[in-house]
Amino acid sequence: MSLHPGRLCLEGVSFAIDGRDLVSGISLNAAPGEMIGLLGPNGAGKSSLLRTIYRTNRPTSGQVRVNDMDVWQQSAGWTARHIGAVLQDMPADFPLTVSDIVAMGRSAHKRLFETDSDHDRTLIDSAIALLQLIPFKDRLFHTLSGGERQRVLVARALVQQPAVLVLDEPTNHLDLHHQIQLLRFVRNLGVTVIAALHDLNLAAMFCDRLCLLYKGRMEALGSPEHVLTTERLARIYRIEATLTRNPRTDTVWVMPS
């Protein structure tokens, strides 16, 4: 639980609302330090699946395990000490500073009424420095740009000292530079990462393995070369695409037409 890569294991995870399956029978093992990209068109079940990991959607069947512990048998606090999440919901309209928000990440490590120790402050300051947020430390969160906000939320997840980092479309609203900067950053963190992504080329560039969801089911799991085929792109994404390779990164490159 201290920012060391953990093992994430989904075993036959299904989630249904009112009898309708949003996610069915997903099994997936992420090795410590692996970065997995979750792909799929809108409504494929990416967010629903991620929610079963960070304890928002209780699986109707199956298990989510981190370091061999069933997440849903543990407390909310235990989960927060092992899984960090960067989500799409943004802090409400309160005058919260960057430091205030990053400090929230320490809650699960604290008992009620326990004040922040020097250690907590060191972690908070380190995360702020690591995400290059020192100049924004005392700025109000809602005055920041999209890229800066996203970095604040990553910093907050880091001070949780998680073994697994869950990212739900982390590159939304970011320009290309910030998309690449963010993905490169989490890749180099050395924790296990599972991220829902829309950009297939960026996913192929940064992820060790890709998991393609369609209508709540897993269509493919494996290396980008294995998962991204013209047949699947046509059937699932409904695009005619040519596959080639990025000459600089030597990764799969999808060219829609």
């Binding site: 929610r51 960070y54 304890r55 928002t56 407390s75 909310a76 606090g77 989960t79 927060a80 000490r81 899984i83 960090g84 999440a85 989500l87 919901d89 943004m90 802090p91 409400a92 309160f94 919260l96 205030d100 928000i101 400090a103 929230m104 990440g105 809650s107 699960a108 604290k110 009620l112 939320l153 907050r156 997840a157 949780q160 869950v166």
Partner: peptide, 18 residues
């Protein structure tokens, strides 16, 4: 401390251990 987490949004607060 928990009241602070509520300001982050329900899903984030859950992920932060509440």
């Amino acid at each position: 401390r928990r009241l602070n987490l509520l300001m982050a949004g329900d899903e984030s607060a859950t992920a932060l251990g509440l």
